[in-house]
Design a protein around this nucleic acid. Structure first.
Length: 505
DNA sequence: TCGAAAGTTGCATAG
DNA sequence: TCTATGCAACTTTCG
């Protein structure tokens, strides 16, 4: 008989509770990844993330081979794949890691039902979050924490998350591949071509996928003890030429890196030293992830405005021209356009850069729905993570969690704080390279003689600003104020999602 | 029930 | 270079 471990996220051997649960009974282990061709053709996954996944699966296969088995990448819809495997592979048990996203939940429910019909045992373990998110809400008496501090209080009461499991370094002989195990290229990890990626479209790879790379990257940053202890997110730079933060997020998203492994490594580095604290510390960043995973796991329609009980209803006005200009880095604001260019090319931008472009698209300047921006991030980010993406877009658009809508990021002055010469803009928008420092953030203000000398005429070689920030900001502040007032008069969202009691006069 | 305080991570200006 | 303050004023939490 065999045991299937179904890899989805959690693409690692270290600290993988569900994988370890698959080898306790000494049946042959068959590690499976299901690649659904429909999903390849229809999902919002950009070429950089496909490459990251392909690299991750190849690395996972190599690491599994090193312990005496391999990865079986199987093409098809999960329901069809498992209906077939349960019969053909004489499956005793299937294990997988808990996934709290709505799509994953309904998928997993269907497979669980199928397994029962085939007499196959199912074993699910939490490994993608620090805590079991259900336990977090339970510990809060069934209420979803809607502030970071709320979450922090709960996890302080819960104590540290479980220690990571030791890495799987060898399998019991009975669990390894046998002479009659299926083999052949049909089960190999996908090539880029199979994923619909043209290699000529790709930029050089800055963040290779895979557990091997994830652990090396974690090691590299944890060695910088003083940097780790002094880390304060708001003081890191959104426009440095090399990332000012760890860029571990893509590895956490795919589960190449276990959040618990990272948590306890951080705790080890902190031990005996003065160190920064949440929310700004590195540990605090893991708690932000936990916060959005927790809220996202129980909030209906979390990735939409309508029907989402925590999300303020705001009358955004869709405008395809504005949207496309933002998406392709053609707003005429160099800081915004450089960020969007880096995002498209490299699949990553700094968290504060995301703040700047998200604010600009929504309440700051363009008044476009946050859902549309979220979808662009979902396509382009290596670390696009459903709960975090939706949660942060609501945050930045002042639709939920954050309400001080009058705090608007300036597309001109925000970037200057950490890069007054505009080196970042020069790197990603080389057409503006020769602009003098005093015009690099606002090239439309440069006299024509300066524009000519720089070899870039505004309105011709680089767009004019698509809106006037000072005017747009004022208009939008007024719109926000009206939207807030309108909602106040109706049913304001409350922590349990039910309409608040009517106020007595 | 009410007012005060707090809330990841705003900007511009003054000292 | 860093910190404090005014700007106008949001919601949620807490005592």
């Amino acid at each position: 008989m065999t045991t299937i471990h179904w890899f989805r996220k959690g693409l690692r051997l270290h600290d993988n509770p569900a994988l370890q649960a698959a080898v306790v009974e000494n049946y042959e282990l068959r590690p499976v990844f299901v690649l659904d061709p429909w999903f390849v053709a229809n999902s919002r996954v950009g070429i950089n993330r496909w490459r990251f996944l392909a690299q991750t699966l190849t690395d996972l296969n190599t690491r599994l081979q090193a312990v005496g088995t391999r990865l079986y990448v199987i093409r098809g819809k999960p329901e069809d794949v498992f209906a077939r495997l349960f019969k053909e592979w004489d499956v005793h048990k299937v294990t997988w890691e808990v996934d709290t996203e709505p799509y994953a939940r309904s998928r997993d429910e269907a497979i669980e039902k199928l397994a029962k019909e085939h007499g196959v045992k199912v074993c699910c373990k939490v490994g993608h979050t620090l805590y079991n998110t259900e336990k977090i809400i339970e510990a809060n008496l069934g209420k979803t924490p809607l502030t970071y501090q709320g979450l922090q209080g709960i996890v302080e009461r819960l104590g540290p998350p479980p220690k990571p499991l030791l890495a799987l370094t060898s399998l019991p002989p009975s669990c390894t591949s046998q002479s009659n195990s299926p083999s052949g290229p049909a089960y190999d990890p996908p090539t880029l071509a199979e994923l619909g990626v043209k290699e000529s479209d790709l930029e050089p790879c800055l963040y290779p996928g895979g557990e091997t790379e994830a652990l090396a990257r974690l090691d590299k940053y944890m060695e910088r003890k003083s940097w780790v202890c002094k880390f304060e997110k708001p003081k890191t730079s959104p426009n440095s030429l090399v990332p000012s933060t760890t860029v571990l997020s893509p590895y956490l998203k795919f589960g190449c890196l276990s959040p618990r492994t990272m948590y306890h490594r951080l705790a080890e580095v902190y031990r005996g030293s003065n160190h920064t604290k949440p929310p700004v510390s590195l540990m605090g960043q893991l708690l932000w992830r936990e916060f959005f995973y927790t809220v996202g796991s129980v909030t209906p329609n979390f990735d939409r405005m309508e029907g989402n009980p925590v999300c303020r209803q705001i009358p955004w006005v869709r405008d395809e021209k504005l949207m496309k200009a933002w998406e392709f880095g053609k707003t005429g604001y160099p800081f915004i356009d450089a960020l969007m260019t880096q995002l498209r090319k490299e699949g990553w931008i700094h968290h504060l850069g995301r703040h700047a472009v998200a604010c600009f698209l929504t309440r700051g300047d363009l008044w476009q729905p946050w859902e549309d921006g979220m979808k662009v991030f979902e396509e382009l980010l290596l670390d696009a993570d459903w709960s975090l993406n939706a949660g942060n877009w609501m945050w930045l658009s002042a639709s939920a969690f954050f309400h001080q809508y009058f705090r608007v990021y300036s597309p001109i002055s925000f970037g200057k704080q950490t890069d007054k010469h505009g080196d970042y803009i020069r790197k990603y928008l080389p057409q503006l390279k020769k602009y003098p420092d005093n015009y690099i953030y606002e090239p439309w203000k440069a006299p024509l003689s300066v524009q000519k000398a720089a070899g870039c005429i505004i309105g011709q070689d680089y767009p004019r600003p698509i809106v006037d920030h000072d005017i747009a900001r004022k208009t939008n502040l007024d719109r926000m104020s009206k939207a807030y007032a309108a909602e106040k008069n109706k049913n304001p969202p409350t922590s349990n999602g039910s309409p608040a009691k009517k106020k007595k006069k």
